[in-house]
Every structure is written in C-alpha cells, then in structure tokens.
Design a protein around this nucleic acid. Structure first.
Lengths: 342, 342
DNA sequence: GTGAAAGCGCTAACAA
DNA sequence: TTGTTAGCGCTTTCAC
C-alpha cells in the first residue's frame, strides 16, 4: 500500500500531482484517463497514484480544451407538473446512461425566464438542450449558430429547423371526443389550455373535427373553454360550462391539471363520470383515487423525454441528417378507469 | 448601426474578438462584464461589440480561472415523488434568484447512483451540493475536503458535520397519531417506509410514543408495518393490517405515496376515513380528489428546498459558522380534509 | 510509447 | 484607467 497523502487539502488535485506521484508526465496521466494507448505497466501506477490522491479530473478544464461538454440542458414549463416530471425523469435516465448530466430550468411559460435558461445553456457551453418551448417562436438561433443541438419536445418550434419529439394532439383530441360520442353523449364540451398555444389548439381542433363529423350543426363555439393550465383553471371551466343555458352532458379535457380541477368540481356537484361523461387527454396522477368511469388517453411523458434525449445525444455524437419530427403514441387508445359501481 | 458580422459561425465568440472589435484589450472586456471599474465611455463600446458578435462569456473558462462555479447540484431519491418535486422547485427558484443553476440527479435510493452523482459534482467542480441522502452514511467527505459545501435535506447525515434542513419527524408522527386518538380511535396502526431509514423510524417512534402514552398496554409491535416507499407499498400494508385477527380501527401513514396506496385500498374496501381513521404525515397530491375525513399534516417540501438552497448559498458566499441543523414546520397542525357528508 | 510545450477562454497581478 | 502577461487544468500535436 502506497503511503497516503490524503490529509485535508483545500484544493483539488491536478493531473500534475498525479503525474509526479506516479513518476510519469501529465500527458501520460491524461492518456490513462482517456483510454488512449499507454504501456500497460504504467496504467496501474497512474491509477494507484490517482486514487491515493483522490484525484477527480476537472471536467471544466477538459471542456475548455476539447470544446465539448457532458452536460445537457432541460427546460420545461414547470417541473411540478407531473407530465414534465415524468418527461424529465426520462431525459435524466437516458442521459445518465450515456454519461451525461442534466441541468434543469423551469420557464413557467414565461419567455423571459426561458431566455435566461437558454443563456445559461450558452454560457455553460452545454452539449445540447431539450426544450418544451414556452411559445412557438422561442428563439434558439444563437444555440444553433454555435452548433449546439436543440430538440423541441411536447411542442413544436415553427421558426427554427430542429428535431421535435411530439404527440399527435389533434388525433388525441379526436379520439378522446369520439369515445364519449360512442358512449352516447351528445353535447360534449372541450376544456383546454390557453388559446394560441399549439397543444391546446390542436386538441381543441381534434374535438371540433369529431363533433362536426358527428353533428355538423353542433354549436361548438359555445362549448369550447380555454383556461389556465392549472387545477383551478379546470374548475372554473367546469362551472362556466354548467352555467350555460343548455349545459353540456360531457366534457373532454385536454390537460392533466385542468382535468383534476374538472373532476374536483364534478364530484362536488354530486355528479359522476357515468351520468356526466368525462374524457381526458393527458395523465391523471394516482389514478386510483380518481372517480371511476373516466375515459383516459395517457400521454407517454416519460417516453417523450427518453426519445428527446436519444435524439439529442445522437446529434451531439455527430448525427447530421435533416431535422426530423418524431410523433409518439398514435394511434391513441382510450381506456376506461375504474369499474362501474354495479 | 454597426456593421454586422453575425453570419453563421461555427465557434463561440471570445473576449478577444470582442476586444478587437471594440478597439480595447481583452481585460477591459472582462472588466466590463464583471462590473469592475472602467472608464464610462468604453462600456457602451464594449457592449455594442459584444452584442454585435453574439458574445456569451464562457463560464467554463471563467470557472477554471476563478475556481468558482455558479452551478449547484441537487440529488434526490426520485424527482417523480411530488415531495422531491416541490423541494426541487424550491431549490431551483432560490438558486436562480441568486444567479445559480441547478444540476439534478436521481439516486433512486441507491448508494451507487448517489455516488455517481457526487462524483459528477466533484468533476464538474460544482459550487455546492444539496442532497437528500440515500442513507445516513452517504459519503460526502471528498466534497467537504475540497471545500465544497454540502447541505443535507430531509434526512440527516450522521457521519459528516454538515448543515441539515430537516423536519421533526418524531413530532410529526406523534401529532398525526394524537389527532386520531382525539377522534376516538383506539387501535391505531402505523405504516411507514423501510425500517432503518431515519425518517421512517422517527415517524414510527412518534406514533409509538403517542400510543404508549395513551395506552401503555397497546400491543404496538403488531400494528407497525414497514413497506416500500411507493403506492403499492401502502396498499400491501393496508391489506396486511386488515387481515390481522384484531384489525386496527385507524391508520397513521408516514409517507405520501404509501398514503395514496392505503387510501386506494381503503376506498376499495368500501370504508371511509370516518369509520376507519386515517392520518397522514406527508402531502397528498391534488387533495381535492382524496376521500374526505383524512387528517393531514403537510410537509413543507418547497420550503425545505428553499431553506436548503439559502443555507448552501450562504456557505458558498463564505459563511463559516459551525454546521447547523434547521428544523422546519414544528409545531405540527393536523388539518381535516374535506367535509363530513352530513 | 512518452514527454515537452502550446493553447482552450478567461481573470488577476502587475506595469505602464 | 488600461494593457500585458501569466496561468487556471486539461488535451494534443510534435519531437524524441
């Protein structure tokens, strides 16, 4: 056993100290740690010295020299939304498996915060960025100019040519509406996020198509409610719809948190999904506690994250094919939650 | 308007290019960007040149030189657990407000994964680390040796002298048990996470104390169930308890996800929290959908994250007072969820 | 196969 | 006040 110098030291060890201890040059230490060919007898020497000194290579210095980095950025609206949480987990696991780490940023749907995190990505020279854009027009050109790959996830980016990993929201809205029609509901309302957000509009579009196909004279505009992407947004939408002169007999909800709000209000109103139809495109956290009878189309959040990470890692590895759009989850299969109470 | 050289460039701009364009030295550019005193007329010149060239300072190079970094690490068991999600959000917001970014790692309660992320923190020379340790003995000595502050959150670290931000789990378990006793329940079972994890044991301890005080002859050992920290763990615990010769008439659950499992099984068994008492120490996501009558003691997850970040940032800023333990949330106040159905 | 030396982009003495 | 210079820790030609 080599003599130990592992006492409290206040600075990190460099390859030079390892080199000195192992009686080789810094280049050799570097080679050992990078798997470059080196006379086999030197390897254990270097490793022992490194271990003895608690040497940890300085990734920052390495990045400076190699102009690469093994950190990617992930920007989502809000990590507290279970959809993004799962997505993040998918990204993280995939990145980790490839030796990458993840820096996380919450944009809260605000372009300014998003911009801040994009700047962080730039100044940290991150290897790439996965972003669920706050808007269609989020500006990622600086990143692209500097050859840092970007993958848009969940929402597309219309101004830039980048890879996207999306779901077919129109088809999702349509499928979620059709299942209600098939169950005999007639006046089906639609509750989605703020208008002018792509995903909300697309899901509403799917609903609209399905309704028109079923009954071209349906007064759709009266039954479409855009609300804020949160639980209370769903409750408010529900109240508003129930206050209509001719209230709906069912609701399609195109957002996970809004669905919670809708369901809270529904239960409170004494109704059940059997007498007042509910379908959801999105995911319901802890589904076991939700009232039975809901038609649910699950969004593959985790898979979106995994795929986005995979695409990004490919780009980082040098993939230069033209940007592509990957659509996950279609065709959609609604499933009925819970069992009818006899 | 200055002439633009903003064409597609494949490398990032350096301080030297900005200096050249502005007709000053690199140091001056550096000074401008670091707020060091510079003749006022030079500032707009430099800023204009920088903007024109899309200059973004290379944080990596800066870190190498200054031996500082503006990134902190956050290691939690599982970002998909809403408790850690809120905690993470608290960390992130606090860090961001101070100009720091956050790197996230999921340990899945595995020491090896945790170790990996600690190594990442080391090799990235992160400014500091907030960790919800997988075990009491997670080894963070290397980090501390190199003067990188560490803050333990949610769970303490017995082997190392570090700041901790915790809650009083014993008191929480006690309060959650007492509220059931006050409501007339007698045989109160306890469901917590795996034994030998500090938080689970402490919460069980609080339950035990309360039960013994109320009825010293209570056969506690029969009514204590340790399960896995997940939804199914709660369901299994519930089934097991109900199968006892003399089943409990109430349950205290000391884990948010396990509580979901318990509640799922409870509802399925046709019971309600009014005939079978339930108290929870932890948080119930989307509380509106949970059956009424539960006694809930909320854990201040977000606040834990904020406080941990604040303590860490203080340390990074040079705070050298002895390590302290900050306890949040005590005294605990159970609240009753939902309204009795008349 | 190995080492010396230069340089990645930046900041901090030190000079001017 | 500003510029020159050296060096943070690493990788990578280029000689040996």
């Amino acid at each position: 056993m080599t003599e130990t110098t592992r006492r409290d030291r206040k600075h990190a060890v460099t390859i030079y100290e390892v080199a000195a201890k192992a009686g080789v040059s810094a280049s050799t230490v570097s080679r050992v740690f990078n798997g470059v060919k080196v006379s086999p007898d030197l390897i254990p020497l270097v490793r022992a010295a490194a271990k003895d000194l608690d040497f940890t290579p300085n990734q920052g210095a390495r990045s400076l020299r190699t102009r690469t980095s093994d950190v990617i950025g992930l920007i989502v609206a809000d990590i507290e939304n279970p959809f993004f949480t799962s997505l993040a987990r998918g990204v993280e696991d995939t990145a980790r498996a490839a030796g990458y780490s993840v820096m996380l940023g919450n944009s809260d749907e605000e372009e300014s915060k998003e911009r801040e995190y994009l700047d962080v990505a730039l100044s940290q020279r991150l290897a790439g960025v996965i972003i669920a854009p706050a808007t269609d027009h989020s500006d990622i050109t600086t990143l692209l100019q500097q050859n840092r790959p970007v993958v848009a996830v969940d929402r597309a980016l219309v101004d830039s040519e980048v890879d996207s990993v999306l779901v077919n929201n129109v088809a999702g809205g349509r499928a979620a509406t059709e299942v209600l029609l098939q169950n005999g509901f007639q006046r089906i309302a639609c509750v989605v996020g703020p208008s002018s957000t792509q995903t909300a509009d697309d899901r509403a579009r799917g609903w609209y198509d399905a309704m028109m196909k079923h009954n071209p004279r349906f007064a759709a505009e009266r039954y479409l409610v855009h609300g804020s992407n949160h639980v209370p947004g769903g409750s408010e939408a529900f109240e508003r719809l129930l206050a209509l002169p001719e209230p709906p007999d069912a609701i399609f909800v195109g957002h996970n948190l809004m669905a919670i709000g809708v369901l809270e209000s529904l239960v409170e109103s004494g109704r059940t999904p059997f007498d007042f139809g509910v379908s959801v495109f999105g995911d319901l956290p802890y589904v076991g506690l939700v009232p039975a009878g809901i038609h649910l189309i699950s969004l593959p959040a985790r898979e979106l994250g995994e795929m986005a990470a995979r695409v990004l890692l490919d780009r980082i590895a040098g993939d230069t094919q033209p940007p592509r759009t990957i659509v996950l989850g279609t065709p959609w299969h609604p499933r009925l939650i819970g069992v009818p109470k006899a």
